[in-house]
């Protein structure tokens, strides 16, 4: 869900930019040189995922996957998602330039929250509970994204309240799809490479792992 330029009032745009800048500052501090390729990969995955359309009823939805990105990256998801949004708006024209801050908050905020909320559940416990927590992460991230968009619209003016409600309603099916999808992705990752969800320690021995690949 991208908000375009011109739709939001100036205070909303400025608050969004300030929040995004704060999030970026925190996120960038979590990225050391060893993690850089990982963050770039996840950012690129988010970008590519948004071009994947999944059939849903008579229509189709494109994936957002901010929940999954959050689960893997934590706070580092903010720079990753910001970069993907920047590239999308510059090269594809999705979203806008002035609303980049708001769009970052709308997409990356839920990613970080989901990481804090569902991260432990996904890491610990059996595959079944990990799948459930993954599903929750998928649903909640989209729900929060829709709520943030609706709030940004509603804060802009009362005239946008019906549009905000429409945004919330339109995201319900997306929540369903992303929930199932994220749960499945979590199950697979847990089975194939569970280290992906481990909180990255600065200076972790990346090289030794790489030898076996």
């Amino acid at each position: 869900m991208h908000i375009v330029d011109g739709a939001l009032s100036t205070p909303v745009v400025l608050v969004g930019a300030a929040l995004a800048a704060g999030g970026l500052a925190i996120g960038l501090r979590k990225i050391d040189a060893d993690r850089l390729p990982e963050v770039g990969m996840l950012s690129a995955t988010f970008f590519v995922a948004s071009l994947i359309h999944v059939p849903l009823g008579p229509s189709s939805v494109h994936l957002i996957l901010n929940g999954l990105v959050g689960l893997v990256l934590g706070w580092a998801a903010v720079p990753a998602l910001f970069v993907a949004l920047l590239l999308q708006s510059v090269f594809l024209g999705y979203g806008g330039l002035m609303v980049l801050g708001v769009n970052t908050v709308v997409i990356a905020g839920p990613a970080v929250l989901v990481h804090l909320l569902c991260g432990p559940g996904v890491r610990r416990g059996g595959p079944r509970s990990a799948a459930i927590w993954g599903g929750i992460a998928g649903v909640v991230s989209i729900l929060l994204t829709a709520v943030f968009v609706a709030l940004a619209l509603a804060a802009t003016g009362d005239a946008f309240v019906p549009a905000a409600k429409l945004v919330l309603a339109a995201h319900v099916p997306v929540m369903l799809v992303e929930g199932v999808l994220t749960a499945a992705a979590v199950v697979l990752i847990r089975k194939v490479n569970p280290t992906l969800f481990e909180p990255a320690e600065p200076g972790a021995p990346v090289l030794e792992e790489a030898e076996h690949v």
């Binding site: 390729p37 990969m41 994947i52 999808l181 749960a183 199950v187 990752i189 690949v213």
Partner: peptide
């Protein structure tokens, strides 16, 4: 699609490392 995305991530991160 979930498995697809999961596999995409696993392979990509192996590659990143």
């Amino acid at each position: 699609f979930g498995y697809l995305v999961g596999m995409l991530l696993v392979r990509s991160l192996d590659r990143a490392r």
